Simulated scan of single mutants.
Amino acid sequence: MIETTAVTATATVHVAVYDTFADWEIGFATAHINKPMWHQTPGRFQVRTVGATREPITTMGGMRVIPDIALDELKPADSVMLILAGNDLFPTDAYRPFTDKAREFLDAGVSVAAICGATGGLAMAGLLDDREHTSNAAEFLAGVGYAGGHLYREEPVVTDRGLITGKAQAPIDFARAIMARLEVFEPAVLDSWYKLYGRQDPAGFYELMSA
């Protein structure tokens, strides 16, 4: 299921970055949030990275990223969404600052989107115990030990009260849910975008070109 919500005029989407960041899982989302083509309000959104510190990190694909800001500089009031990509750190103490920030965002009513291993980190932090959610597999989350198994949904992406969760196998569905939540595109434009990228139907391209 997909929810939408209104956002403020100043809209910064923050992407959490850390070593072993799974590059490919959020690329469809960040590229189309940052690129103003087809937006309802071109120039409304910007994407900024946030790390545990401002020290460089290395993604799973071997790219070096210097975070724009550190977690302790980030306040929910300054953001419209925190996006958490998959990673190999989620079961370790090194990932706890990111789940703590996700909790702060949700408590403040600001959206969080997590995919793949990031959902494991949220589960370990108790953030999936009372929200419908998905992940790579029910067995994956059961393996980390959490109390929300009854709310697991076997769907590519699930949104519940501001928290978007997605499967690593479904980055395009994840991107669509994020853009719907932020109202980046008009609904009909988002449908055409998904027709092109999600269904690989070239008709979506021509619809977008005429939008």
Rank of each mutant, 00 (worst) to 15 (best):
K195Y: 02
A16L: 06
G43Y: 14
G149P: 07
I164P: 00
M209W: 07
V112L: 03
P76A: 10
T10P: 10
P42A: 08
A188P: 05
I115L: 09
T119L: 02
E155S: 09
I69F: 04
I66M: 10
G86A: 03
I2S: 10
P56E: 00
E207R: 13
L151V: 11
A16V: 05
I69Q: 05
I69H: 06
F28Y: 11
A31P: 05
A113E: 00
E183A: 15
A70L: 08
G121M: 01
M209H: 07
D72K: 15
Q169T: 15
A147Y: 01
G166I: 09
T20C: 01
T49I: 06
D129I: 08
A175C: 04
T99S: 15
I33T: 12
A29L: 02
P91I: 05
G43H: 13
E154D: 14
R103H: 14
R103L: 14
Q169N: 12
P42K: 03
E3T: 11
A188H: 13
C116A: 13
V184H: 02
W24T: 08
A16M: 09
L163G: 04
M124Q: 12
Y146C: 05
D72G: 10
P202F: 09
K195Q: 14
L163E: 01
M81G: 05
E132H: 12
D160W: 06
V110Y: 01
L89N: 12
L151P: 03
D107F: 12
E73T: 15
I172H: 00
M60A: 14
G148M: 01
L122T: 04
Y206S: 14
F174S: 01
I172A: 00
T30C: 04
L208P: 05
T12C: 02
Y197V: 08
A123H: 08
A77E: 09
R54T: 15
I66N: 11
M179R: 10
D19L: 01
K167F: 04
T134E: 00
G109Y: 08
I172D: 00
L190F: 11
I178W: 00
W24Y: 07
P171A: 06
P36A: 02
L122K: 11
E155Y: 06
P36N: 06
R161S: 12
L208V: 14
A16C: 10
A123F: 04
P171M: 10
G121C: 07
A180G: 04
P97L: 10
I164A: 00
I115T: 13
A70P: 11
M60N: 15
Y152I: 04
T49L: 05
